[in-house]
Design a protein around this nucleic acid. Sequence first.
DNA 1: ACTAAACTCTATCGGCTTAGTAGAGTAATA
DNA 2: TATTACTCTACTAAGCCGATAGAGTTTAGT
Lengths: 149, 149
Amino acid sequence: MISQKAKYALRALVALARAHGNDDTQLISEIADQQRIPKKFLEQILLDLKHHGIVVSRRGKAGGYMLLKSPDTITFGEVMRIIDGPIAPLPCLSRMAYRRCEDCREEKSCEVRRVFARVATATREVLDGTTIADCIGGVANEDARALTA
Amino acid sequence: MISQKAKYALRALVALARAHGNDDTQLISEIADQQRIPKKFLEQILLDLKHHGIVVSRRGKAGGYMLLKSPDTITFGEVMRIIDGPIAPLPCLSRMAYRRCEDCREEKSCEVRRVFARVATATREVLDGTTIADCIGGVANEDARALTA
DNA sequence: ACTAAACTCTATCGGCTTAGTAGAGTAATA
DNA sequence: TATTACTCTACTAAGCCGATAGAGTTTAGT
């Protein structure tokens, strides 16, 4: 299960991507209303995405957020890792935060690990192969990407 | 991330599968020692698996556990659903416990949902397509080997 | 029948995470 | 300088996770 927070983050980015190009910003409260996200919670999420260089903000009157990276360079995987942490289903399969399973005798011969490695690969293939832009360009675009992934 | 409990369950089933055929049982404490699982915790897990018809037990002296289902009919997916619940990454993608996302305007056009539907499909393909039997028998599973390399 | 071994079941607990709220602070603009 | 809007830190209620405790029940063997 992905967290509510990650879902909000992705939806907010899709909303920002829709207005990308014309370089005006969107208010947190606009996005919150439009996407039904608690405003104060969204503040934290966008701030987090800003710290990771995904979006930029302008403060004060006429402030707001906009994308920093182009929508076609922001992958679902990147966002998931920022918000929810490692994608891997086991710590011993994580690239960004590897940790050995203490209760497992030998990693190389761990049956559970071997199976979930395949899950991890499949998951990463989808998440790292899909960008925010893929969601707004319609289904055709997405399929094209899927086939080349 | 899969839970510790699910990892224990799968490892215990692999252990039971190794002794399957000769119809003597294994003690909880044997499995616990061999697999480094806290005994009392494993008790709960095996009991749960018993309630779901995966294993059977004999009580009293010379008691223990053994598989009820044949190892090649027990899929990882089945075990995961028993122990950890739905496999789907979003409630609105679950087959066994569908729930609408309350904050999402229209399910059909939800971009996040569309992407994670692909993750769910890929995950289910692996988990429902791999059995406990696939993990034992040594080098038997060439597929898994190839994909994890 | 008695006893020891082993599973059964319910309850409980500390620690952590999740989802969200609160509020004071800072920057930009009119 | 007033207002608007983002920034940052702290806090909290609820729930989950991993594990432990202990009383109860069943069975084998003597």
